[in-house]
């Protein structure tokens, strides 16, 4: 193996490791500021490319997630500038407030994912399936309701109740872990 390509491999592998570790947190950060899935995915793709092209500039002693979020933030602002004003969900002040709050994040992604796994498997099968259908992103909740032959309001309410119990379960699981550490 050539020295250069070995270096490239290592670099790519390191990037993949870091990116995959932080991907859902970066996606969440973007989605929180630009709460539309297609826009979020577009910004994430741009962010991914920027991160890779600037990976040499990343200080390895620093937190990749923080660095990635700063680049994602810039991409969010760039995206917002291109959008017509009426298409933006949040104004500048809300974006700033949300971005500030995000810095004080309590739990990391791994913990959240593991807690979610634990909590999902405690749900009843029908509830789990409904959540899957609603969050798969192929249909709006109203369309899911139509397909299931149920009133949309009833599906909305049920999803909200399931999310609430999931949310409480996640909080409980993470707090227990925190207390046990």
């Amino acid at each position: 193996m050539h020295a250069n390509s070995a270096h490239d491999d290592l670099r790519a592998r390191e990037f993949m490791r870091l990116f995959s570790k932080h991907e859902s947190r970066i996606r969440g950060y973007i989605l929180g500021l630009v709460p539309r899935w297609p826009d979020c995915e577009e910004i994430l793709a741009e962010t991914n490319l920027k991160l890779w092209s600037r990976f040499d500039q990343f200080d390895r002693s620093k937190d990749f997630g923080v660095w990635a979020r700063s680049i994602a933030h810039y991409e969010v602002l760039t995206f917002r500038k291109k959008q017509a004003r009426q298409k933006l969900v949040y104004d500048d002040m809300t974006i700033e407030l949300l971005a500030d709050e995000q810095a004080a994040d309590r739990w990391d992604d791994q913990s959240l994912q593991q807690a979610l796994v634990t909590c999902l498997q405690r749900l009843r099968a029908e509830s789990r399936e409904l959540i899957r259908q609603v969050y798969a992103g192929d249909e709006k909740t109203k369309e899911v309701a139509e397909r299931l032959g149920r009133p949309a309001s009833s599906v909305y309410s049920q999803v909200c109740r399931i999310r609430h119990s999931l949310h409480k379960c996640i909080e409980r699981t993470l707090s227990n872990e925190e207390a046990g550490q």
Binding site: G28, L31, G32, L112, L116
Partner: peptide, 9 residues
């Protein structure tokens, strides 16, 4: 933020 991250996952 917590709801957004849960939603993403």
């Amino acid at each position: 933020w917590q709801l957004i991250h849960e939603t993403v996952i």
